[in-house]
Write a protein that binds this DNA or RNA. Structure first.
Lengths: 189, 189
DNA sequence: AGAGCCATGTAACCGGTTACATGATTAG
DNA sequence: CTAATCATGTAACCGGTTACATGGCTCT
């Protein structure tokens, strides 16, 4: 089983969805820790259906294309549960911006400052988005965001990771840009 | 050109190396933002050589296998320089541990706590490693770590990203584990 | 005797991305 | 009239991982 299949199971365990819905939810709700396009999702669902991890209900629609609403089987939930506490490899991220940093001594100064300031902005933007999102959860879901048996708790702690990640990244970008600006200013004097 | 080719150019711009050396350096020096095995590196070097971005000197050795020491050509350096300030996509990381968190409401409590405490430990270990590494740079290289024209500055700011990243990750793992432990304790009362 | 390092290369495989394909409905 | 949304599927491609292949030297 691929990790994507567990992502799909995890989403379907919350609510039954079509392949199209899954693609949307991955884009909007879990994009900060996973991504997948429909070209990958549909074959995965077919595999999982054959393996008995999910079943679908065919829904004929008049004014839109027909669709298949998938939900996990008991075997699917059991497979997900069993997988959840198995060891996780820390996947060393491939980060192009850190690569630029590692080669920064060769680069054009002004262009580099612009690049890092731009990324600082992007990450602060995301940070604000995630914080608004978490605030909404707290308001909307109340105490359930602290109940480990609720999916709302799960959403809450996951987005907390997004927030910490973006904050640390934005701060680093700003710190790098500031260092470059400082020495640029010193040289002009 | 693939990103790996720029990684290799970036390393070769610092000092000429063999394919084997490059694999070692990627494992030891830049693993926190990139990785690659020799099965990918050798074909990449051959492509770059054909494209005129690098040249190699053949070194015959008596007691070890012969090797090829690569160094970038002027065209190679120019290509790297030009690429360094081009826009960077923020690649949404695929993070399996956050996926576990997102499904945590289905998981076994004790196993989950163990998983997150283990990752907290792993990230604190890496954090300590990177901090020692940065400390060594500061002692060994002195003022050069603040000179944007020096590769030492580049190494210094890159590892700073590793430090910030690991610290934020470890803190999140600890925070998640603490939340789970808290409610586990409350239920026992 | 066997494991591990140095050193280079190829081949099979696999996950993921992008593009191709279809087609009705709705909003600008 | 055009673009976007809903909805599903396949095929080509590409980057990256793992395994196959070779072979001498050194250390335990």
């Amino acid at each position: 089983m691929t990790t994507l299949e567990y992502v799909l199971l995890g989403l379907l365990a919350r609510e039954p969805l079509s392949g199209y819905d899954l693609a949307q939810q991955i884009k909007t709700r879990v994009a900060f820790f996973w991504r997948a396009q429909h070209g990958q999702i549909y074959p995965a669902l077919a595999r999982m259906e054959r393996a008995g991890l999910v079943v679908y209900e065919f829904v004929a629609q008049a004014e839109r294309p027909n669709k298949k609403i998938y939900r996990p089987t008991e075997a699917g939930i059991a497979a997900l549960r069993a997988w959840l506490t198995t060891p996780v490899e820390i996947a060393p991220a491939r980060d192009e911006l850190v690569l630029r940093a590692y080669c920064i001594w060769l680069a054009d100064r002004a262009g580099t400052i612009a690049l890092f300031r731009e990324h600082e902005r992007l990450h602060r933007e995301r940070l604000a988005l995630y914080e608004r999102n978490q605030g909404w959860m707290a308001r909307e879901w109340g105490e359930r965001v602290h109940d480990p048996n609720s999916p709302h708790f799960a959403s809450y702690i996951a987005i907390e990771r997004g927030i910490g990640s973006e904050r640390a990244y934005a701060e680093w970008c700003g710190w790098v840009a500031a260092q470059l600006e400082q020495t640029a200013a010193a040289n002009e004097r």
